[in-house]
Write a protein that binds this DNA or RNA. Structure first.
Lengths: 166, 166
DNA sequence: TTAAATATGTCAACATGACTGACATATTTA
DNA sequence: TAAATATGTCAGTCATGTTGACATATTTAA
């Protein structure tokens, strides 16, 4: 690919917009929609994966926090979360200070499932990062951070970066 | 935000993966899911938007090409495309060389609708690009290009870059 | 010239993951 | 003790995808 296709200065605003929009659409699609045998064999879908992911990343997450992260209603969450609890992938502990709260944790089984699911995506993304180079990865992060909704940005960046500087 | 949160060298592979994955998820979601009054008032959804977009970008697109771009079945496309044709936003011309083909074009009405829909997203993305800077935008494009599925990459990049060097 | 392949469209049934509205229970707070 | 809060559940709906079967018009190949 010749440089003209990457050099942002050679693009009009409208071309930048179209390119960003289309690349984001196709790349997101290709990244999330791989043949997901593991999940499907268990009767799970992407909604289950998302819950496993965020509970794995935030052990002790409260139901209300998960709802806010996923930006869905409790009725939507209920069906999906219930099956994960029933099948022993997620554990719900009663809150220590507030006994109304349910604190969510992955069970060992849930952790194993999550690891298995993530394998392919991890490989895919790290290969892309390697091909693009560290400087491009930093640009990728910067643009994505800027694309976040203003109301969400601080919250999300804090969550995402927690643990990086440990 | 201190530099440590952006410097890729300070991340382990697993941290890079998690950060890329979550940022991509949240940024994509925030970018596509704005309060879409214009579409909704007409009884249209995101599927309609996608068709308007790709037909607008590729005038004379064949149905088969659109199906391949969107990666959906013709049955799925049918419902959505039909309503767009019925309501006068898309025109289907019979192919000149091959009369079995239907070549898709936006009508003036369709073009107006698309412009209206794109307004907010264009503003959102260009503001993000401005905040991040041209160098980051180039990194953003590079990583997204690398994230495309290998089978799709050449095709998609050719489409996306067509018109940039005119 | 006819048979097969191709491009498109349509009917029907189903899956997933969202939504709204109404209501129930347990627990904490004012 | 009453109100607010955190969670859960029932029931119905919607948007968008899927598979399978079949129909029509047109082009291509034997």
């Amino acid at each position: 690919m010749t440089d003209i296709f990457i050099d942002a200065k050679n693009h009009t605003d409208h071309q930048k917009f179209l390119k960003g929009m289309e690349l984001l659409y196709f790349a997101y699609r290709d990244f999330i929609s791989w043949p997901d045998d593991v999940l499907h064999a268990l009767g799970f879908g992407r909604a289950h994966h998302r819950i496993l992911h965020f509970v794995g990343r935030n052990p002790g997450l409260k139901v209300a926090e998960l709802l806010k992260l996923l930006n869905i209603t409790k009725q939507s969450l209920s069906r999906v979360l219930s099956t994960l609890v029933e099948k022993g992938h997620i554990r719900q502990d009663i809150g220590a200070q507030d006994r109304r709260q349910r604190l969510l944790y992955l069970t060992d089984q849930g952790q194993k499932l999550l690891n298995k699911i993530a394998e392919h995506q991890k490989e895919h993304m790290l290969k892309a990062f390697e091909n693009a180079g560290d400087q491009s990865v930093e640009g990728f992060w910067k643009v994505l951070s800027a694309l976040l909704a203003d109301e969400n940005r601080d919250d999300i960046l804090m969550r995402i970066n927690s643990g990086i500087d440990d």
